[in-house]
């Protein structure tokens, strides 16, 4: 059948950014989106914090809301000493949140839909929290892998399980974000492709019938908005949880 085909994964391909310059220095559209996310965060905070009013305006309220949300998350999950890690958690949360959100717009690139990006973020969190564990507890951090209150003969079985469970953290952290973002964008593309296929196959009736996938895409847009925020939240709260384990060891 000649006509439109659905190529749902084409949207994730990297192309050189910045015109011809990007090709020379390996600067892709993904990097462009990352820079855009960083610029948007900086702009929002620059605009929001300019007034420094006691009674915040809209922009300042948005900034304060984000700040207090992440601050409470840090304190509730890690404890009072969690405030030391607030800058890290906030940076990760804001970067992923804005990255997910701008990825929802046409012509923008969702850099969180690449496993390379999410795995790099997750590995950084994993290595950092492990480093914090060894920094705070020294070699006693190894006892994290020894569950308490277990008879000694079970330990050879349980310690590998604990170690694998610990090592699986960066995998689950990165795959969750990557899979959610990719799945959402693929579904969008597939339903949009249905519309083209229907119109091409059934002419005018198909064009009317393609209202159904269009409606689905509209509903999907709302869902994707939720997922974008939720995945950033989950990533941030898991970062907090891992830091909690590193600081408190239980």
């Amino acid at each position: 059948m000649a006509g439109p085909t659905i190529n749902a994964l084409e949207q994730f391909s990297l192309t050189p950014g910045l015109g011809g310059l990007g090709k020379a220095i390996d600067f892709s559209n993904s990097n462009e989106a990352m820079l855009a996310a960083a610029a948007i965060i900086t702009l929002i905070f620059g605009a929001g914090l300019k007034a420094r009013a006691l009674v915040p305006g809209r922009a300042q309220a948005l900034v304060e809301l984000l700040y207090e949300f992440v601050r409470n998350m840090c304190v509730d999950t890690i404890g009072e000493e969690g405030l030391r890690f607030f800058p890290l958690v906030f940076t990760i949360f804001a970067f992923i949140l804005i990255g997910n959100l701008i990825g929802l717009f046409p012509y923008f690139f969702a850099f969180t839909s690449h496993i390379a990006v999410t795995l790099a973020l997750a590995l950084f969190v994993f290595l950092f929290s492990t480093g914090v564990g060894f920094y705070t507890h020294g070699f006693k951090f190894f006892t994290f892998f020894v569950p308490s209150g277990v008879p000694g003969w079970l330990l050879p079985l349980l310690v590998p399980i604990e170690i694998i469970s610990y090592l699986s953290r960066p995998v689950s952290l990165s795959v969750r974000l990557f899979a959610n973002m990719t799945a959402g964008h693929v579904m969008w593309e597939v339903f949009a492709g249905f519309m083209l296929l229907l119109t091409a196959s059934f002419g005018i009736f198909g064009a009317f019938a393609s209202v159904v996938p269009l409606g689905l895409n509209v509903a999907l847009a709302a869902l994707e908005l939720l997922v974008a925020g939720l995945q950033a939240y989950v990533f941030a709260i898991l970062t907090c949880l891992y830091l909690h384990d590193a600081v408190h060891m239980h």
């Binding site: 694998i164 469970s165 699986s168 995998v171 689950s172 795959v175 969750r176 899979a179 989950v234």
Partner: peptide, 11 residues
């Protein structure tokens, strides 16, 4: 719900 599925496969 967002966490559990991946958690098991990752290990």
């Amino acid at each position: 719900a967002m966490r559990l599925g991946v958690e098991m496969v990752a290990a």
